[in-house]
Structure formats: C-alpha cells, structure tokens
Design a binder for these strands. Structure first.
Length: 503
DNA sequence: GGAGACGGCGCC
DNA sequence: AAAGGGCGCCGTCTCC
C-alpha cells in the first residue's frame, strides 16, 4: 500500500472508490452529528496498490467532483456522508456501496458484529488494530485549528480506505441479485431518508421539570432504606434476609410474585419501595438530565433532537436508534415524556401506525384462509379469536381480547404453553387450552409455523432478505418463526419511510 | 479510573 | 434444558 499525500487523479467511469473521513475530537455521544469533531483527513482508494490522503478540508469538493461518476464505497456511509456534507455539497446519489449495511444484508443472524476489523478478518484474513482510532480523540490531536496527524495516524487512516475497498470487491463476488436489490431498492434509500431527517423540536423546560421531579421521588424513597435499591446484589441479599427466603432475582415481575407468595413479611414493603424507586430512577436516569446534556442541540434558536438511525441494525432487518434511542421513550404508563417531542416551527408532527401489521403478514405468508377472511372483512382479529375461544361475543375493552392478542403475537414469537401459564399466572391446562384454540382457529398459520421451525440454515422476509439461523442455538426455531414476520414488517416500514422522504 | 459484564427496564 | 422475538441505555460491580 503506497500512500500519496495529494488529490487523486480522476479514475475511469464506474470505478469502485473507497472513501474514509477521519475527524479529531468527536463527541462520543454525538458521533453522528455534523456539529461534532474537526476535519482530520479524507482517504481515497480505487486500486489495491495506492491510497491518497488529503488533510485540508478545502480540497474535499474537488476530490468528490473528480469521483462523481464512480461508485463510492464507505464503511457506514451515513456517517461519512453526513460529515462530508460539512465540506461539500453532496446530493443523493445512486452509485454508492456501504460495506457495513451490505454485510448485514448478507450475513444478518450469522454474525453479530460488523465493524471494519471484523470484516477485514473475515474477508481478507487481515488483522487491523483499531486502538489507534482512539488517538484521534485526544486533545493534543488537534491544536489551535491546525490539523496535525502523526505518520502513524496517516498510515492508520489510509489502511481503513484500503481495507474498505477490498471488502467491497469481495462482497460483490458473493452477492446475489436479491441481496443487491435489497440494498438498491430498500436500505440505500432508507439511509438517505435517515440522513436528511431534520429531527424533532424538543420541550427542554418540560423535560427538565420531569427529571427534577422524578429524581426527588426516588431520593425520598431511598432515604428510608438501609440498602441500595438500585443494586440487584444488595436487593437480593436484603429481601432474602427479611422474608423472601428463596428469591432468585430482583426484577419487577419476580418481586411482584414474591409479594403475593410471602404474606406478612418485612420484605413486602421493602420490595414495593424498591420497585417504585427503580421506576423513578429510570425516569430521572435514562429519561432525565443526561438526556438533555447528551442529545439536545440548538438550531435557529430551537431545541432539537436528531437521533442516529441505523437502517438494518437488527438481524431481521429492523431499524434501530441510538444517541438517543427514540424507539423506547416511555408511553405505556405515562405520555409526559413523548409529549416533549414536538413539531419544528412551520411543520406538523404526524403519527402513523400499521393496524395489526404482524398478523397481516402472518396471514400473507401462511395464506391462512380464516385469517385472510377476517382482514378482508375488516374485522378485529383479536376479538374474532376471543369469540371463538370463549364461545361468546366479547367487546374490545374485555381483558380477554388483550390476552388473545398476546397469544396471537406470542405464537409468532414461539411462545410456549409453559411460558404463557407463567406470564398470565394461569394453570398449564388453561394455557394449553388457549394456545390450542388459537391453533385450531388458524390451521394453515399453525402449519406454516411448524414448517418454519423445521428450517436449519436461513429464513427469508417477503422481498427475500435472508436471516441466518444458528442450528446449535435453542433459539433457532423461534427465530425461524419470528424473523420472516418481524423482518417483513421492517421492510414495509422502510419502504414507507422512503416514500414519505421522496414526497 | 476506564472497560466491560450483568441485571434491569424502556419501547415495538 | 429451556421455557415469545428484536433493540439501546442506565447503574452497579468487578477487573485490570
């Protein structure tokens, strides 16, 4: 690998070109935001013998203009393009290759790590040392606005582009037409939509008030306890000592069961206080002041939050969110946190949701006649199953609808009768009755599930995304049932996002 | 003092 | 033997 410190010459049209941006002193909580870090270098590799490096951000537009008719390769293109857009105008483009996102299409469920060193090891049998990456964050790495990369750092940065280039070539050799289509028609478009997401405006004052209130609440409870309720180790020891003699763990469900099981012990009050304190700690910790410090930024005088959205992070192809995770903002017990996410000035915030998305997908995949009929007749599938099971007409508010909903969805996940009896606190006999009733109501869906569970190598979503199974895992059968459903739902959602983005 | 495992818990 | 799937973040604790 020869390193040349200059703007690269223009390669032939449609060449594969790997690009890698390095930045100094990134904020680790805001790696995805263009407000974070300072330009260190851009490395460029379009043949295995040579890597070019520029260390002046003024050169970025010229470098990219030269490469406009090439296929740009990145390891995590959303990151690199977000940051390159600080220095050059980059419209949405078709000629792009993302080694990270494509490898997840190829190997979802087979591997679970996809960092550049993982891919280098698997595809090239090259072992690279990622520890040098940390050196870019050190204060001395960027002094007084003058970029100063050591020769070691330059070598490191160039190696990344060189590796990325070779990985793309290897991926190209093994990709099927369907793999490529998933990249071209779904995931690559979703990247652009996510990259251009302008975020939410955010009610910082309200959130701050919530954080303070919730912090006071757990502190008040903890004052009266002689153990730390946020330490599972201490909770377990203390509650065992005070009455829950055979307690195994300290999660909410286990403690609630113990409260029912051991009347008249000191542990009961302590367990209740522990549960309550942990709830408020969660709300003041995960959803508290840190959230404001780490993730809220100002734009045009408005507080906003822009999360890092990952197009296929889950092995099923589902999206994920981090910094912050906006997919787990509390909503079930209180709406006060979600209310803080509001429309930016001049915009409207739209809430959209699929109705019974996963059962509909199950109906499609299994072609179950009863399920299909229910959806064609625009009926509520959970009420229909409950009516069948309990042999009477129930209402939407009836708890048996919720119970049947959990079972219908649960069967898609591989729920067992044993698991259902534990969760619903009913006898094994009752659980068996409920599960069998659902299976009898949807016979073809039931057979579809069994056929899935027999698979040993991989299963697919409707457009053909592979989810590999680990045949040695006792989870394989559950994944074989669930992944086509969960994954197909993810494909639909991403296509919707892409359409909305285009609109 | 930082890294990582673990338990726990928020959401779909 | 285990006993619905998928995530990300927090605090505690251990290890180095």
């Amino acid at each position: 690998m020869k390193i040349i410190k200059s703007i690269p010459p223009k390669p032939p049209k449609n060449s594969f070109v790997a690009l890698d941006i390095e930045l100094f002193r990134m904020n680790p909580k805001q790696l995805h935001r263009p407000t974070s870090g300072k330009f260190a270098a851009l490395t460029i590799c379009s043949d295995i013998n040579t890597v070019f490096i520029i260390q002046n951000k003024e050169d970025v537009p010229e470098v990219l203009a030269n490469l406009d008719d090439c296929v740009w390769i990145f390891q995590n293109s959303k990151f690199d393009i977000t940051h390159l857009r600080r220095y050059a105008d980059i419209p949405q483009r078709k000629k792009m290759w993302d080694t990270l996102v494509i490898d997840r299409i190829l190997w979802g469920g087979y591997f679970n790590t996809f960092s550049l060193d993982d891919l280098a090891r698997r595809y090239l049998d090259i072992y690279i040392d990622k520890s040098l990456q940390k050196s870019f964050g050190e204060p001395k790495a960027f002094a007084g606005g003058v970029a100063g990369m050591s020769e070691e750092q330059i070598e490191y940065a160039c190696t990344d582009a060189w590796i990325t280039y070779q990985i793309a070539l290897e991926q190209k050799k093994i990709m099927t037409k369907i793999d490529f289509k998933l990249w071209r028609d779904i995931d690559s478009h979703t990247i652009w939509a996510f990259m251009e997401f302008q975020g939410f405006a955010f009610d910082t004052l309200e959130w701050k008030a919530l954080a303070e209130r919730n912090e006071l609440r757990w502190q008040e409870i903890d004052k009266g306890l002689s153990f730390n309720p946020h330490s599972p180790k201490q909770v377990l020891a203390y509650l065992k000592k005070t009455g829950f003699t055979d307690l195994k763990s300290t999660d909410k469900a286990t403690l609630e069961k113990a409260i029912r099981k051991y009347p008249d012990t000191d542990a009961i009050e302590l367990a209740k206080k522990t549960i309550e304190s942990k709830m408020y700690r969660k709300r003041s910790g995960t959803y508290g002041a840190n959230f404001l410090d780490n993730f809220v930024e100002q734009k045009n005088g408005v507080d906003i939050i822009i999360p890092d959205l990952h197009v296929n992070k889950a092995e099923t192809g589902r999206i994920a969110s981090s910094s912050p995770n906006i997919q787990n903002i509390p909503i079930r017990e209180t709406a006060e946190f979600r209310k803080c996410f509001i429309a930016r000035p001049g915009n409207k915030l739209i809430i959209a949701d699929y109705a019974a998305q996963e059962p509909r997908i199950m109906a499609y995949l299994s072609q179950d006649e009863c399920m299909i009929k229910i959806f064609q007749d625009k009926k509520d599938i959970y009420i229909e199953v409950a009516n069948h099971t309990f042999d009477e007409k129930i209402t939407k508010a009836d708890d048996r609808r919720r119970q049947m909903k959990d079972i219908v969805l649960g069967i898609g996940y591989g729920l067992t009768e044993w698991g259902l009896s534990k969760r619903e606190n009913i006898s094994l006999k009752e659980a068996k009755f409920l599960v069998r009733s659902v299976h009898r109501f949807f016979p073809q869906a039931s057979i579809w599930g069994e056929k899935q569970a027999a698979k040993r190598t991989y299963v697919t979503t409707i457009p053909g995304r592979k989810v590999w199974l680990n045949p040695y895992s006792n989870q394989a059968e559950k994944n074989a049932r669930n992944s086509p459903i969960q994954g197909s739902a993810a494909e639909m959602l991403k296509l919707s996002i892409v359409r909305m983005h285009k609109e």
